[in-house]
Design a binder for these strands. Structure first.
Length: 932
RNA sequence: GGGCAAUUAGCUCAGUUGGUUAGAGCAUCUCCUUUACACGGAGAGGGUCAGAGGUUCGAAUCCUCUAUUGCCCACCA
């Protein structure tokens, strides 16, 4: 079996993925006894390694953010799996309540139907049908990416087990007094017609208006247009809410208005008298210093209403129209009503002006409609007690964020946490496990949810049913209070995140005490984007502590956001997205993954060209391996055993590459251990490309053609050994191409029976497995590289074609170095394409020659008839000038007494060495100039 | 209003706890179809490391301020 000349990513990817999956390689080791890790020597095989996928939205398709997130996770999972740890990656999707419902509602709208037309049951059937037909798009796409999830454990937030977990969590919190119901101002989306949590109302700066309106002060009698100057002025951004005003407020210490407190003003258009109250919330500096108070339509006013026992007048319908309490404006859309009201006020002479005003307005995160602060009865989770546990866990060092700066963001949010509105007035989701007893409610036993009260830590009564609401895990047969069997389940469903926050343990079987839960909880790492720290990460930590008594994961890796090259967030609606699947089709999943990971050091600004790095690299790897395979023709003894080189006197390049491999593997390991995937992949890229391909393979070529059979053999063995290890180092990043190549390598290996079935289960090359470190070899190859570069430079400088004959003399300036130079004379001759090469320690220049100079040596080539003395003179003068400047700089540094006194010895040595090198160079240049 | 990032070559970005004559990829230019690879090889040009102060023997790196950009949070109507 040989590798095709062209790498066919499509074919390779589908072939290997289905094989991996069907053979069960993605499952934890403990689940696949037939495939035990083949290398028990792995020192890092420690506790199990578990991560949970951030469940993507069931309506979603794979976008670049997912591709990045899952590439990173897959690198970590594959790396840990190779290290021999019992590894589990649980995949799944969430039901995305509002988003999914919207999709199906849109479908219905095409038939000119609404969900109310078809009814709840039939509608839910439709949603399930949609889910079953389209809900697996994203998981199919994750497979294309190569994500090595254990699909046998795939979960859906609405499946039976997770629904049970949701009910368990809800009831438990209720019993602990951490769930309450009440009338409060929440964010209401008039389009989706549901409540939203604070996190779901995205604030955006909007250029709006600040409307100044006169509220007349009533005189003796008569209509207010005759009140003359007797009025106050309020400023508001939402004039339409004035229909529900029940007071105006001033600051208690504001001298301008002190006399008004306790008096009444007339609410225009509604002709109601409302009181002037004093409240410290009012900022005398803002606007006119007078605020209209609308307790049913503004959270601040709501609070103020509480303090002053004001009536709450809700003037809006759930779909954002003015209701019957809005008088003549009834039935108008809120924004139309705003215009009409301003117009009417103008007509009455009560409208003063509209100032342009920039302010933050909440928008529905699903449909971008302006949300309305709206008074309604909702279910809430009391968050402070949960947050307190999370804060304590952090103090105890149980949660660590990478990079660290996110810690503060997380802690700040926890510190200022507000209660979580969890009920949604939609149908797709977990229906709230609460049942209403209409008899009890009619009897007036509704103490718990009467609203108009600040939420209490402990409800007044815990006796089930006493308030007409029964919260239970399963539907109760009758009301425990009155025996009524006609119980109605609360129609609302729970926020989708109420199921997502249980994900780390609900997917492992909770509330049942399963083996998985015992073995795999808490999980190891969480990898996610910063956008969902509040939505998901913080809440998972709180849920883990509350329900499991333990944080769900200890390391939280927050990676960058994927953005389009323009800097905007990538999104389909903006038309600036790049479809990862297209990139996979075009360049391969490995290319996509490698490019993304290399760029992931911070926010990722993407354009299509950026994936060329990965594509080119994959191609490079493929071809380098093809070359190595060609060398293995007829070789029977290729093996992965490091011991094979113990008794062999290896060539200098081989000693060098083995030393580099060891060094780089250690560095890559170090980076991976601290989520430095970008650094790790970059190191690997340069090692493979620069060290291995550009130098070692080039150096190896002549050796594999050598007349010396021993040299020939050992070189091929080293090529095989190093390449096989490179494949394993690359595998977490490029799973497909490495598997494909590795399998062909396996067929050439003498120790193939010791190889596992897949590279996935081959051990991770550990730097301590062998001891190839060799400083001398590294130094010598450094000199070799200089010599070869010097020759290439000379060829280019004087336009000598590569095919032209060239001889050279290397003049060693450093005593003792001559032996080293002679040691690789042959290699320099080949790489420099020389017909002849001499290494000498003293040299008398004859005829026209030019040189490349280095600290340790000069490389001379004869250039009879080519050398232009004038140009050469100029070049050398420039070099001399540069070098003198350099020497001057170092000298200044070295001769500074403070430097000598304070700098570490190492640095001092280094600087002195540099100075000597520079001086040596200068001598070379000057000698050359003199000889012209 | 508060907070966090970013600002380094034409473009996109690296730059580890302060110590290389500041790097890479792409783009540009020159040369090379040498039997792994033109998705390649060998070279070249190109930067006062946003600006100003400060700490230090030494600053792209640490501190302060300023400017520009982006993001997150926030109940001043």
């Amino acid at each position: 079996m040989e590798l095709d000349k062209q790498y066919n990513s499509r074919q390779v990817e589908t072939k290997w993925y289905s094989l991996w999956e069907t053979k069960g390689y993605f499952r934890p080791r403990s689940d696949r006894s037939a495939y035990q890790a083949p290398r028990p020597t792995d020192k890092d095989a420690g506790p199990s390694y578990v991560i949970v996928i951030p469940p993507p939205n069931v309506t979603g398709i794979l976008h670049m953010g997912h591709a990045l997130n899952n590439s990173i996770q897959d690198v970590l999972v594959r790396w840990n799996r190779m290290k021999g740890r019992d590894t589990l990656w649980v995949p799944g999707v969430d039901h995305a309540g509002i988003a999914t419902q919207n999709v199906v509602e849109k479908k219905l709208a095409k038939e000119k139907k609404t969900r109310w037309d078809v009814g709840r049951e039939a509608f839910l059937k439709e949603v399930w049908k949609w889910k079953n037909e389209h809900g697996s798009t994203i998981t199919r796409q994750l497979r294309r990416l190569g994500a090595s999830c254990d699909w046998t454990r795939e979960r859906f937030t609405m499946d039976e087990g997770l629904s049970k977990a949701v009910r368990e969590a809800f009831v438990t919190l209720y019993e602990r007094g951490l769930i309450y119901r009440g009338n409060y101002i929440i964010n209401w989306c008039p389009r989706c017609q549901t409540a939203l949590s604070d996190e779901e109302a995205a604030h955006k700066d909007v250029q709006g208006g600040l409307y100044h309106i006169k509220y007349p002060i009533p005189g003796k009698s008569g209509p207010y247009e005759k009140m003359g100057e007797d009025h106050i002025v309020v400023a508001t951004t939402r004039p339409e809410t004035m229909l529900g005003d029940t007071a105006v407020a001033v600051h208690p210490d504001d001298p301008r208005y002190k006399h008004l407190v306790g008096k009444k003003v007339i609410l225009p258009l509604m002709d109601r008298q409302i009181p002037v109250i004093a409240d410290a919330f009012v900022d005398p500096e803002f606007g006119t210093g007078i605020v209209k108070v609308t307790p049913a339509h503004d959270p601040n006013d709501f609070a103020m209403g509480h303090r002053h026992h004001l009536e709450q007048i809700n003037v809006m319908t759930p779909d954002g129209k003015i209701n019957e309490r809005g008088g003549v404006y009834k039935g108008m859309d809120r924004f139309d009503a705003r215009k009409k009201i301003v117009h009417d006020l103008e007509a009455l002479g009560l409208f003063i002006k509209r100032d342009s005003h920039l302010h933050a307005v909440g928008h529905c995160y699903r449909c971008d409609t302006v949300v309305e602060p709206y008074l309604s009865k909702q279910w809430f989770v009391k968050m402070q007690p949960l947050a307190a546990k999370a804060l304590k866990a952090h103090e105890e060092g149980k949660t660590t964020f990478y990079p660290d700066r996110w810690t503060k963001v997380y802690l700040n949010w926890l510190g200022g946490i507000r209660d979580w509105c969890i009920s949604r007035q939609i149908w797709w989701g977990h229906q709230i496990p609460a049942w209403h007893c209409e008899k009890c409610q009619a009897a007036g036993l509704v103490s718990r949810d009467s609203g108009n009260e600040e939420p209490k830590m402990s409800p007044k009564s815990r006796v089930p049913g006493s308030d007409g609401i029964i919260v239970a895990r399963e539907k109760p047969s009758k009301c425990p209070s009155c025996g009524n069997t006609e119980l109605q389940q609360d129609p609302d469903v729970l926020d989708t995140w109420f199921s997502s926050w249980l994900w780390p343990f609900s997917t492992l079987g909770w509330p049942a005490k399963t083996e998985d839960l015992k073995k795999f909880y808490p999980t190891s790492d969480l990898v996610t984007a910063p956008e969902i720290i509040f939505f998901w990460v913080a809440r998972m930590i709180m849920a883990g502590l509350e329900f499991m008594g333990e944080v769900p994961f200890t390391q939280i890796n927050i990676h960058g956001t994927v953005r389009a090259a323009t800097g905007l967030k990538m999104s389909k609606s903006l038309g600036n997205s790049i479809d990862p699947l297209e990139v996979i089709e075009e360049m391969g999943a490995d290319a996509l993954r490698y490019s993304l990971v290399m760029l992931s050091a911070q926010d990722v600004y993407l354009s299509r060209e950026k994936f060329e790095v990965g594509r080119n690299f994959a191609n490079k790897v493929w071809n380098a391996c093809r070359f190595v395979l060609m060398q293995l023709e007829g070789l029977e003894t290729a093996s992965t055993d490091p011991g094979q080189f113990k008794k062999v006197k290896l060539s200098l390049p081989s000693r060098w590459i083995l030393s580099r491999l060891e060094e780089k593997a250690a560095m890559i390991e170090k980076h991976l251990a601290q989520f430095g995937l970008a650094q790790a992949s970059t190191e690997l890229y340069h090692f493979v490309w620069d060290d291995f391909c550009d130098w070692y393979i080039e150096l190896a070529k002549p050796m594999t053609q050598s007349a010396d059979p021993a040299l020939k053999l050992q070189t091929k063995k080293v090529l095989f050994y190093v390449t096989e290890r490179i494949l394993r180092l690359l595998h977490p990043f490029m799973p497909f191409i490495t598997e494909e190549i590795w399998q062909t390598f396996k067929q050439k290996a003498a120790d193939a029976e010791a190889w596992p079935e897949t590279i996935m289960l081959a051990g991770w090359p550990h730097e301590e497995e062998n001891k190839f470190h060799n400083a001398e070899a590294q130094k010598a190859i450094g000199l070799l590289q200089d010599a070869v570069s010097g020759l290439r430079d000379l060829r280019i400088r004087y336009q000598i074609a590569p095919t032209d004959k060239l001889t050279a003399v290397i003049v060693c300036k450093e005593p003792g170095m001559i032996e080293t130079l002679r040691a690789f004379e042959r290699e320099v001759k080949v790489l420099g394409r020389l017909t002849e090469l001499q290494c000498v320690s003293a040299f008398q220049k004859k005829g026209a020659m030019a040189a490349s100079s280095f600290a340790a040596f000069d490389v001379f080539v004869p250039l009879e008839g080519i050398l232009d003395p004038e140009a050469e003179k100029k070049r050398l003068q420039k070099k001399i000038q540069e070098t003198e400047q350099w020497i001057e700089n170092i000298r200044k540094k070295v001769e500074n007494p403070s430097f000598a006194a304070k700098a570490p010895k190492e640095i001092l040595e280094k600087e002195k060495e540099k100075l000597n090198d520079a001086k040596s160079l200068l001598v070379s240049y000057k000698t050359q100039l003199a000889g012209l």
